[in-house]
Design a protein around this nucleic acid. Sequence first.
DNA 1: AGTGGACAACTGGTCTGATAAGTTGACCAC
DNA 2: GTGGTCAACTTATCAGACCAGTTGTCCACT
Lengths: 248, 248
Amino acid sequence: MSRYTFSAVRKASLSDAVYRQIAHKILHGELAAGAPLPAERELSAALGVNRGAVREAIKRLQQAGLVAVRQGGNSVVLDYLNEGGLELLPNLLVHADGRLNAPVVRSIMAMRSALAPDIAAAAAKRGGARLADELDAILAHMRERADELSALQALALEFWKKLVEHGGNIAFRLAFNSMTKTYRAVWDTLTVALEAEFRDTENLSAIARAVRGGDEPAARSAGRRHVEIGRLALERALDAVEAQGGRV
Amino acid sequence: MSRYTFSAVRKASLSDAVYRQIAHKILHGELAAGAPLPAERELSAALGVNRGAVREAIKRLQQAGLVAVRQGGNSVVLDYLNEGGLELLPNLLVHADGRLNAPVVRSIMAMRSALAPDIAAAAAKRGGARLADELDAILAHMRERADELSALQALALEFWKKLVEHGGNIAFRLAFNSMTKTYRAVWDTLTVALEAEFRDTENLSAIARAVRGGDEPAARSAGRRHVEIGRLALERALDAVEAQGGRV
DNA sequence: AGTGGACAACTGGTCTGATAAGTTGACCAC
DNA sequence: GTGGTCAACTTATCAGACCAGTTGTCCACT
């Protein structure tokens, strides 16, 4: 492996930039629901890009439930609270100025708490010994690398990924994907905030044992205990910064 | 009101049609993960549309996590099980031949069961008397129109929409939107399958009371009991048709 | 007063054909 | 075996045109 690490060079396409700019304006209230979008020709002139790029961006906005397009009239901004899907979470998680949006963080942690027990239970129901072996392997790595917090974080995510992959529930799996994308957007922040959870191999071991024994209730309660550790830690952290009126 | 009812004329755009066709091929295995997509020019020639329409469709596929696009090389199909979000559920719900996909139905009902109790609890925590009044109004309508099953279904959905709107949890709300879109795709089927749940105004009333009293645990358990009615009914229905090897 | 036709001025939808720029593999000089 | 060069791909972007649906206005007719 190379002695140095390099990160990929940024190469956002024009239509991506257009999409992001308009989505940002909508999600942060600059373009209110019901407001008409400028005409495609106007937008392409204002943004200095070809109309095709604008159209590609608008098609994506349409798919995300942010705008409604209708031939003959202007596209109009929709209420994303009624039309948007989970994939909007990453965009909502940070304020325009880069601060974390605390209510959104709390929402995500609450959803995680709602789903994790059932994900663990489903894995226990269908997983079997083979899954348990894989989980134990991950746990072994976690114990080896207890001093590398970021590695622990990655392994914990992998643990849950395995559970959701073997639970046989496609809805859980897709929701997990959406939440993982959100998670990655604030990875470094959570490395610190969720440390207590990453160190809780005890409950993860309990899940692995429950998977091996097919014990759904045990998996459910161990899963619940595990994610509650992180939820409470984050809750306290948010309360602390909010109490002193600080930035999140 | 007019004596006759008319339905809107179909007016799908070209890029929509292209998107649907390719997404269908991916989600139903015709295009496996890792496979390269034909070049845009090839696709536009094969489909008989211009390249712009193909590009708009591919941009949407990219956003949905179905393909990865890279300048200079062919776009490649991704594994939607690892990359896709909840918004794919409507597409996965029905097989290529129009039959319901039973495992997906079970998944969705399981997810609903995981979220509903927490949605009810969150509403009880933050809703207050005003929300309770609105819920009671919906319940009154449900009792009036107990003989119109489809109306009951719409009102039940509205009831949950109110709960999720007032729960203050954005993640629940967005997930609810995704699931509602899926729900609408099989509305008529569920009208019959979930009849028992739509008639269960008892637990909904209990939720409304819990909201009025701010009683989170009561809202949680009533919510759980309510959706379990539908989940079990659907479970039995699926088991029945599967036992006789029938179509779903 | 009310209906519906004709029309202008918008809007998005589609198309053609061109150029820029990134990727890949083959070949070759060193 | 390393790296340069080139051809043949690919996507990215562009300009400019025409088609098609929506809206508001005016007006003739009933």
